[in-house]
Amino acid sequence: MATTVVAEETARAKPRVGDLVFSRLAMGAGIAILAALAAVFIFLAIEGVPGLAKPAEFYGDASNFWGYVAPLLFGTILAAVIALIVAVPLAWGIALVVSHYAPKRVATPIAYVIDLLAAVPSVVFGLWGITVLARQLQPGYVWLDENMGWLPFFAGPASGTGRTILTAGLVLAIMILPIITAISREVFSQTPRLHEEAALALGATRWEMIRMAVFPYARSGMVSAVMLGLGRALGETMAVAMVLSAGGGISLNLISSSNPASIASNIASNYKEGTPGKIQVLIATGLVLFLVTFLVNFAARWIVQRGERRLAR
């Protein structure tokens, strides 16, 4: 670290035109992103804030905006959490297989197939979710209802078509798998060879080497991979709108046919026939989603920083 500072100082001592231009360009790009985000935020605020306080008839069953948005927010987070619980361990497992376990001629096709998945349009995920996955899972839901109904998650009655929030979460899990895998894979394979070999030379098993050399090195990358996955899961629109049988309120029941919609899918479903006033309400829910990702990222960043501090100590 110290050497870098010295290098930077020497660089600063002799300012060059090229350096100046390049650093300004880089900074400009950063500021452009801030400006774009600010523009989106301002747009959301201008269009959405009037939607926060409309007469009660704009909010369906609820009497005010918060009553309207609460189940949607719950549904968004529930589906995203299910997706993360399923996808993250799988993604890290696949990433490890590709970067450390499989021989190259196996690893390359696996990585390729996973990347391919990122390209499937969400409409197609939705179609597949309805026609294939939901129907396959439906008997499983009936079984869960009969045998594990004492758990609040499986209280039932089981959905007749399998289009539940659990199915939506699983479709989301498959959708976010590629992005988490791809980034984790890259950071895993960037671990310095010397660290890995040193660990192995000390007699570590492969898993111990990964735990002690690869994971600490890759930590921030792993977290940012998860954050990107979460971002996609929270904002995913069409697949959830198509797969989920929405229309219920807040409930932990994962296998019934009345589920809370997610914010993004609710916007997509209700935007089409919306009158100007109703669209303002929908954009206000978009604003809420925006703020939620803000908070989630804030929390994640805090956790990472705390972790790094502990590591440094």
Partner: peptide, 11 residues
Amino acid sequence: AFPVKGGEAAE
């Protein structure tokens, strides 16, 4: 928007 809560809903 369909007014009755609950039941199966599809896009």
